[in-house]
């Protein structure tokens, strides 16, 4: 196997290990739009990173986490629903980011690159980012798991049983922002959001407990990465898009399985 393929595979598997369990919570908590909004906000982060001469990941991280905190502050006023607030904030961030990028004359951002990324361009340093960042993210998720699951099942019950629901929710949102910030520059918006949503959705039909679904989502993610990379090599097609198509095919298969099994 070529080196770049191996690095792409290792990077994709590393991403799948994290997005499986984290994505389950995004599906259970109906937060897909939040993930999308984070991705929109990332462009602003790219501009910030470039303008201040810092690592783009840091710029993305700052913009995504700021947006999360603004969202939480606005949510507490309870006048508008979360998806409306996200629709406002995310598009505002995208527009401001776009203006900022256009005003930085020396900077030509490769928007296609951010949208689709290039998993086959992952370098050794990037792998370190994925595995160390991923280990940190999984550590935080393991620490949150009991409380986050309890409040996902029923928030009132969780708070009555002493779980600090506000803090748990905030940390989880910041965790998503972190994952998107680290992964986006490497694999693109399309792939990171897809990896958060599609493998957990495919795993749902075959799971009886939350933990089973998280584990199966990891397997589905790893399979999608391997199948997608193989297909991209075989047909000389863009790797990231092939992975998304493979994951979607897996989801459709699980759906068909349910229809046939009649469950």
């Amino acid at each position: 196997m070529e080196d770049f393929m191996l690095r792409g595979l290792m990077g994709g598997v590393g991403v799948a290990l994290v997005t499986g369990p984290v994505g389950c919570f995004i599906v259970w908590r109906k937060m897909a739009y939040f993930g999308n909004s984070m991705a929109h906000t990332a462009l602003l982060g790219v501009a910030i990173g470039f303008a201040f001469g810092v690592d783009l990941r840091l710029g993305i991280l700052i913009s995504c986490m700021s947006l999360t905190i603004i969202l939480v502050l606005l949510q507490s006023r309870k006048t508008l629903s979360t998806d409306t607030l996200l629709g406002i904030l995310a598009h505002m961030a995208l527009a401001v980011g776009f203006i900022a990028v256009s005003m930085l004359e020396t900077f030509r951002v490769d928007l296609m690159g951010y949208l689709f990324g290039d998993i086959l361009a992952i370098g050794v340093l990037d792998l370190w980012w994925i595995y160390l960042g991923g280990a940190a993210a999984l550590g935080v998720l393991a620490w949150l798991w009991r409380g986050l699951l309890a409040l996902t099942v029923n928030e009132e019950l969780a708070s009555a049983e002493g779980i600090p629901t506000f803090a748990v929710k905030l940390v989880f949102m910041l965790l998503i922002a972190f994952i998107i910030a680290v992964a986006m520059k490497l694999i693109g918006i399309l792939l990171i959001i897809s990896m958060l949503i599609i493998p957990p959705a495919a795993a749902r039909r075959f799971s009886k407990t939350p933990e089973q679904m998280a584990a199966l989502a990891v397997l589905a993610g790893v399979f999608s990465v391997a199948a997608g990379l193989w297909a991209s090599l075989e047909w000389n097609a863009p790797a990231g898009a092939c992975i998304v198509v493979a994951a979607s095919a897996l989801f459709l298969f699980s759906y068909a399985w349910e229809m046939i099994a009649g469950r």
């Binding site: 009991r146 699951l149 309890a150 009132e156 049983e161 939350p210 089973q212």
Partner: peptide
């Protein structure tokens, strides 16, 4: 020690949860 039953309890279908797992939640 308090046992609490919330006013509404609807678990989304996307979350696989058996009674056994619910009892072992916290």
């Amino acid at each position: 020690s308090v046992g609490y039953l919330p006013q509404s309890f609807e678990v989304d279908h996307s979350l696989p949860l058996t009674v056994r797992r619910l009892l072992r939640l916290t």
